Computed example of a mutant assay.
Amino acid sequence: MTRTARETAGETTRETAHVWAALVETARRTVADGLVVGTSGNVSARVGDLVLVTPSGVPYDRLTPDDITGVDLAGRQVLGSLVPTSELPMHLAIYRTTDAHAVVHTHAVHATAVSTLVPELPLVHYMAAALGGPVRVAPYAPYGTDELAGNMLRALDGRSGCLLQNHGAITYGATLDQAYDRTAQLEWMCRLWLTASSLPGLTPSLLTRAQLTEVGERLKGYGQQR
């Protein structure tokens, strides 16, 4: 039996509403877990050629199903009336150049602190391998600009997360949960390095690139394989 256009549109609408609900939940987690303050940071998810994204300047606990905000891959608004996040260029740059289905950007304290100190997060823990390797810091550029998006893409080359100098962190994944978990893991590693390097007279031991590569291979078989 041939599917009707109405049936297809109905399923698309239901999927979009489901993803929006998950996106709002993820955005609220960033606040609850202390990764952002107020309306800083932003979250997005891709559904086909549609990008759902948190709107600019709206507290996440006030977002409702009627506040759904979406743009196409060119940045043209196609859903909702609220203005999309000012960081839309970063989100779209990731979707245009990777297979990402979700992006999480935060202003987490420890990640932001590290971004002001070093050009790359030192290899203090093997979970850097889960992000593709040593986490780079994208050079500073004003928020919401194509310049920042370009700097970010270069820092993300071969990685699924990076730090943004004097700004925060950004990660992406195949799902909202994966993107969020990578953000949380990155913030934890930044906190770990700052803690270990703060003790007078002591320097934290760091992993070698070879050790990190070995872990990367082991992580490919980690967890429940289906």
Rank of each mutant, 00 (worst) to 15 (best):
P119A: 03
P65H: 09
M152K: 01
Q185H: 14
D177K: 11
T213Q: 14
A130H: 06
V78M: 06
R218W: 09
I94D: 06
V31P: 11
V103D: 00
T64H: 04
V124W: 02
Y95I: 11
L79E: 08
A74D: 15
I170Y: 00
T26N: 07
R62P: 05
L202V: 15
A111P: 05
T98A: 05
V135Y: 01
L63H: 02
A184Q: 10
G10Y: 11
A138E: 02
L148M: 15
V118R: 12
G41F: 03
T69C: 15
L23Q: 01
H167Q: 06
T112A: 14
V47C: 13
A138F: 03
Q224G: 11
A45C: 10
T69V: 15
L163T: 04
D177Q: 12
V31L: 15
A17K: 14
H125M: 13
V58H: 03
T16Q: 13
G216M: 07
Y143I: 03
A45L: 06
D99F: 12
Q225E: 12
L131D: 00
E120H: 03
V47R: 08
V37T: 12
Y140A: 06
D177N: 11
T64P: 02
G57A: 14
G221E: 13
Y222K: 12
L219M: 15
G38A: 08
S86K: 15
D181S: 06
R218I: 11
H167D: 02
A129S: 12
Q185N: 07
P89Y: 08
L50F: 07
L23G: 05
Y126I: 07
D181Y: 06
V103A: 05
V71S: 01
V31C: 12
Y143N: 11
H18L: 15
T64D: 07
R96P: 04
V137A: 01
V135E: 02
L156C: 03
L199F: 11
V37G: 13
T30W: 08
I68Y: 00
D177H: 08
V104Q: 01
G75I: 15
S160Q: 13
L23V: 01
D157C: 07
Y172N: 08
Y180W: 10
T195R: 13
A45V: 08
G41P: 06
R3F: 08
Q185M: 12
A102D: 00
L88S: 01
W20G: 04
V43Y: 03
T2F: 09
M90E: 04
Y180L: 11
R46N: 07
P55I: 11
V135I: 12
R209N: 08
K220Q: 09
V118Y: 05
A32N: 12
D72V: 03
V71I: 04
L121F: 04
Q211M: 11
L176E: 05
T26G: 06
L212E: 14
V51M: 11
A129H: 00
A45R: 03
R154G: 10
A174V: 11
E15Q: 15
A210R: 13
A100K: 00
